[in-house]
Design a protein around this nucleic acid. Structure first.
Lengths: 260, 260
DNA sequence: TTTCATAGTTCAATATATTGAACTTTGTTC
DNA sequence: GAACAAAGTTCAATATATTGAACTATGAAA
């Protein structure tokens, strides 16, 4: 999901770009925000924002409270549901997870990289009170997650460096890997081990193992992970489930045409 | 989620409206489609569609395959996740379902009405092989679903008739209620019974009970339902869980400010 | 290979969206 | 209640998006 180039004649469609910027901002904000704050934050002319927001509200992309506060509306649900329904990867993951009884008590997730974040595309939450519930569409800083680590471990160092051109993401816990250099060392260990490990980098008390899913060209296009309470995550357990996960990742990779 | 009015000065923002129409069509289509077919289906000028699609692809709202086929892209995930994260109703449902051990083996769903469909906002799928997996964002014709029946039973006959001005939705199974008049009779039975019942109208072999969630004004804003294999859905079971569900719907309604 | 139809791409004249400025409404302070 | 600042709304001149027509590329049929 790179910042793509338009190719050929440059197209602008500024209304659409601004609508997307508005929706992204509302999503990142995490709480309702006034039109004035939104307009200032995005540097839009008042009139433009006014017109755009009227239509965004009409189209159910934005919801306006009686007090005039704005938050995302429900329209995007139909598109995101359609995206997931038409994803071969998600379908393969859902099938694989439904069929695997070894994983039944644990949280299993599938995510992809989007810039410096992972985005969760499918989640099967287990019963353990991890203190975190994975949600489809949820984003986390990639270097701290088992899925992110697994995907980056399958890339060149140059590609990893390119993903983090400026400041390192804010840590999620005191255990979150603190720098790019330390991250590169972890990735080497991940490659040696065959699967990735998050030992409390996303959430204290939670441990995860992860593995990368590859496409037909061998590029890492997704990561799968399994999460545990830290108390049950002995080295033997992590290894056992790490291997299980690698097998799943391989099965998914093969369904995407990988022939490694 | 009515077709809202713009209020005040009419705003057009046609690029945005057309982008939304494109995304809706891709979502409804259910499979990848060529730009030419999409353009013809929506009656757009070729040039306009061309430009819009270039930008939609650039913004990750649409994905284009190497063969030029179009399908929804991943961008909407962040907005739909934000919408769900900021919904008091969804939050209350998630909390309620997580806390209720009576429901643990069954599929529990929360949906809202959108025109003649219900849209699922939250789903906790159980272990039973219902032959259907509820997904967030998924839509079904409302009259056949337990949640739809529950919501319509809490409306006036005029409002129900207004929701179905033209042809009756295509049945999902041979048991799907066949007409508006038959539906109105079902709604009367639902009101008498206190909860709704779908006895194979969505999927043969699956039975559901449902109840409506009301807002502070007493209007039905959502429905909750519990699904079973038909083989386990004796009248006693349906009644027991119907009552359980009504209690859940009441708790949710109260969290939305209902004081009935 | 040629022909033809369809799909995709480019471009500038025309249509209309954008937005600065003015106005109105709302909320706060004195 | 008056004064003031900020938020929200309107409107037409200006900027630019839209799109018909022309062109290019692709695929199928003969």
């Amino acid at each position: 999901m790179d910042e793509g180039e338009t190719g050929g004649a440059a197209q602008s469609v500024p209304a659409l770009r601004r609508a997307v910027a508005i929706l992204d901002h509302l999503a990142e904000c995490g709480e309702p925000i006034s039109a004035a704050r939104l307009t200032k934050a995005l540097g839009l002319p008042k009139s433009t924002a006014h017109g755009l927001l009227l239509v965004l509200v009409e189209l159910d992309l934005v919801a306006r409270s009686p007090e005039g506060l704005l938050r995302p509306g429900p329209r995007s649900l139909r598109w995101s549901n359609a995206f997931l329904a038409q994803s071969d990867l998600v379908e393969a993951f859902r099938r694989q997870v439904a069929a695997d009884e070894h994983l039944s008590d644990h949280s299993v997730t599938l995510s992809v990289l989007d810039g410096a974040d992972v985005v969760y595309l499918a989640c099967r939450n287990g019963a353990a009170p991890l203190g975190i519930t994975f949600r489809i569409g949820m984003r986390l800083s990639a270097p701290f997650t088992a899925t992110g680590k697994a995907m980056f471990a399958a890339m060149t160092e140059a590609d990893v460096r390119r993903a983090f051109p400026s400041r390192w993401p804010d840590p999620l816990t005191p255990r979150s890997v603190a720098s790019l250099d330390a991250f590169l060392k972890e990735l080497e260990a991940t490659r040696q081990r065959g699967h990735s490990v998050d030992d409390g980098q996303v959430r204290l008390g939670m441990a995860c193992v992860g593995a990368a899913v590859r496409d037909a060209q061998g590029l890492p296009v997704a990561g799968v992970a399994l999460s545990f309470l830290e108390a049950e995550a002995s080295a033997a357990v992590l290894d056992r489930f790490g291997n299980r996960l690698r097998a799943i990742a391989e099965a998914l990779s093969r369904s995407l045409g990988w022939r490694g």
